[in-house]
């Protein structure tokens, strides 16, 4: 969240509100991606199961 408590954009993969793109860190990125989705896409992390299960 930014200083005003509102996210500036949404992850283009999962729709999570984010302040800036985790890859290019530009606030006006056309294909913003969140940190979690980026790490999964690059194979730097394994996808986590949904917390609600099933």
């Amino acid at each position: 969240m930014n200083d005003h408590g509102t996210a500036l954009m949404k992850c283009s993969t999962c729709d999570t509100p984010i302040d800036e793109c985790a890859f290019c860190e530009e606030p006006d990125c056309r294909t913003p991606i969140c940190y979690e989705c980026l790490n999964v896409a690059l194979g730097q992390a394994l996808p986590q199961p949904h917390v609600h299960g099933g």
């Binding site: 793109c21 890859f23 290019c24 530009e26 294909t31 980026l38 896409a41 690059l42 194979g43």
Partner: peptide, 11 residues
């Protein structure tokens, strides 16, 4: 994967 993201994000 890096090339894809770097081109898409113009990094």
């Amino acid at each position: 994967e890096m090339a894809h993201f770097m081109v898409e994000h113009e990094l």
